[in-house]
Simulated scan of single mutants.
Amino acid sequence: MRLLRRIVVLAVLAGAVYLAVTAIRVVQVAGIDDRGPADAIVVLGASQRNGSPAPVLEARLEQAKALYAEKAAPRVVTVGGGQPGDRSTEARAGKEWLIEQGVPARDVIAVPTGTDTYESLEAVSAEMRRQGWRSAVLVTDPWHELRSRAMARDLGLDAVTSPTRTGPSTGTPRSARYVARETLAYAAYSLLGERGSRLLSKGP
């Protein structure tokens, strides 16, 4: 019994250390802003309302628009599906917003697939392979950078990240909650792969 208790204690300590290191990595990678150049800017989806991007998605689209203007990539890919009953998708709402903001329609590609980060990146990876594109600048929230980058690279993309610094997901009062969530989500994905990516709530 004494040996068993020691094993349990060591396992708990090891798990705690792993989570602490992962949390540090989440925060460190959140500070990275890599602006290409790349084949495409990829905007990871977030909620939309009847074709209008909600604040989280709009903040990501603003970042993508700025990157496009800086010529980080010659095109923007929006991604994300819709919920039952939705009149639009995250990808379509994002594409329409970018076009309204002056990005040429020919340079915006919508991939209306995915209800979570892995599904979305899987669809983007397939579309980029079909087009002969390989490198991507991922646009998402800072705390989501580590996990989305890891997934994209595992799916064969040469991926870097350039997060939005505005929007509801970036404010300091809520940072601890987002870091904790992403720490658990990244740990689940690291240990269990695609299956682990679906253990927490849907969406990026």
Rank of each mutant, 00 (worst) to 15 (best):
A150K: 12
M151K: 00
E100F: 03
G31T: 04
K65G: 07
Q131V: 00
G196L: 05
S169N: 13
R177K: 14
R2Q: 09
V139D: 06
R87C: 15
P168D: 05
L121I: 10
Q48P: 03
T170L: 07
G171L: 12
P84F: 06
T78M: 04
P55K: 06
R177H: 15
A159D: 03
Y189N: 02
L67Y: 05
Q101P: 02
E122A: 13
V139A: 09
Q48S: 10
P53F: 02
A105E: 14
Y178M: 14
A176W: 14
P168H: 04
R35W: 00
P37V: 08
A64P: 00
A73L: 06
E194V: 09
E100P: 00
E182D: 12
I99V: 15
E70N: 08
P74E: 03
Q131W: 09
G15L: 09
S88H: 02
S88L: 11
R6N: 10
A69I: 05
V103C: 01
G85F: 12
A188W: 03
V8F: 13
V29L: 13
G193Y: 04
A38F: 03
V111F: 11
V43T: 03
D34W: 10
Q63S: 11
A46G: 08
G167P: 11
Q131H: 08
E119L: 07
A30W: 12
R165H: 14
A136F: 04
V8R: 12
G36E: 03
T140S: 12
Q101H: 14
R174Q: 13
V79F: 06
P84M: 05
A105G: 04
E119M: 12
L184T: 06
A93K: 11
G45P: 02
R129K: 08
A187Q: 11
M1A: 12
D141W: 02
V160E: 06
E194A: 13
I99D: 07
E70K: 07
G102D: 05
T164G: 08
Y186H: 09
I32Q: 15
A176D: 15
S47I: 07
G80E: 04
L157C: 06
A176K: 04
G81T: 01
A91Q: 08
W133F: 14
E127F: 07
V179H: 03
A93G: 10
V17W: 06
Q131D: 07
G114E: 00
S197R: 05
A150S: 14
L200C: 03
V124N: 08
P168N: 13
G114I: 02
I32Y: 12
